[in-house]
Design a protein around this nucleic acid. Structure first.
Lengths: 208, 208
DNA sequence: TGATCATTCATACATCGTAAGTATAGACTG
DNA sequence: CAGTCTATACTTACGATGTATGAATGATCA
């Protein structure tokens, strides 16, 4: 399972390959199981070898977030109204995070300011400026949209969270919380609130 | 510094006192320094004694989030328009998180579904229903507002994050990212974007 | 007083991140 | 080809962590 190789013999590893392994490991076993030794085993190398590619574990985690964003942030679509294009961007970002739920706590607690994310931001600004938004408003909108998506994913129920997180709504006492109970009467589809909030925010900026 | 007490002698500790100690410790030294042994020292007790109040460290962290929310969520104001009241709520929530920056990563990666937070949600719904919102829309709005605040705080620059996080804007290459550079021309005050995003979202829901 | 119970502490273990040092494969030099 | 250098990987070791287990003692009540 673990590395079987004499010293000095190349393992043919790259930074990206290590990060791929880390994503695989976390997807499969959860964030808590990501240790240097285990990651080493995943990519068939001893733990310390990983320090050739990352200064320390924290740097590895930063790299992981960046890695995820870099595969996520396809260019924005180049046709459609600015609202459609912004909406699509928000959905694309959400999709990536939904596909790697175990990585969400990491992404969410580790603001990414990589060149990659700056590029996406620049593209978003271009769309909005073209649509007539002043520079500062455009920046506010791009930022705010990102913030909302992050917040939505952060507070979305996940496995491995506090017990009864998933079905805690089923257990709500209608006497203590009548309005919540009422509002939950007709449950929504997955992501329906997301749509609505994104639209609301875009609408709000459109008129602000 | 550490516990100086014979076995069996009560320490006069409560769950709340332990959590207070944890907040103090994290505020002072950072989340990374919160270990059972250190927390024990902070409240003058051996590490294992803490397990009388919390099943394990994870439960302690959950308790910490709940603890923070419970001091945060003063009731909503009972006068003003619904928009003013929602706005004030968002600002109150933000204020608490700003006051404990080191706890933000915790709050953000650990959705709180305590009775306390349900109470606040119920109050929020009451305000909105009174203002004429349908049940589901009201729930969407309360949720979305919370999500935005969380996201805003999650992505806000913090100490101890990736290097140059604070001043990375100063280092932006205007050739590579002209629109970002332009938008940063006239820098905003702290929390100005927050105001704007909250208002946009409320506005959007008001018209949706 | 003596017995029961609640509470705390001491010990121990597996696992973690990583500092320090060592060995080897492959590349370069002559 | 022989000799050297260097990049790469491994080994060992240390302190710190979360926590299982069980002993020791103060508190409580008969």
């Amino acid at each position: 399972m673990t590395a079987n190789r004499t010293r000095g013999q190349k393992a043919g590893l790259t930074r990206g390959a290590v990060l791929d392994g880390a994503v695989r490991l976390v997807d499969r076993e959860g964030l808590g199981k990501l240790s240097m030794r285990r990651l080493g085993a995943e990519v068939d190398v001893e733990a310390m070898t990983l320090y050739n590619y990352f200064a320390n574990k924290d740097a590895l985690l930063d790299g992981l977030v960046e890695h995820l964003f870099s595969r996520a942030t396809l260019a924005l679509a180049d046709t459609g109204t600015w609202r459609e294009r912004m909406r699509d961007y928000a959905h694309a970002l959400r999709k990536t995070l939904v596909e790697h739920p175990n990585l969400v706590p990491l992404v969410v607690s580790r603001p990414a300011v990589t060149p990659e994310s700056l590029r996406v931001m620049e593209d978003g600004l271009a769309v909005l400026r073209e649509a007539g938004f002043p520079a500062r408003t455009a920046l506010d909108l791009v930022y705010s949209l990102n913030e909302y998506v992050i917040g939505h994913m952060a507070t979305a129920p996940r496995e491995g969270t506090a017990p009864a997180q998933e079905d805690h709504f089923a257990a709500i006492d209608p006497d203590a919380f009548p309005l919540i109970a009422e509002a939950l009467g007709s449950p929504r589809g997955e992501g329906e609130r997301f749509d609505r909030a994104v639209d609301a925010m875009l609408q709000g900026f459109a008129e602000g």
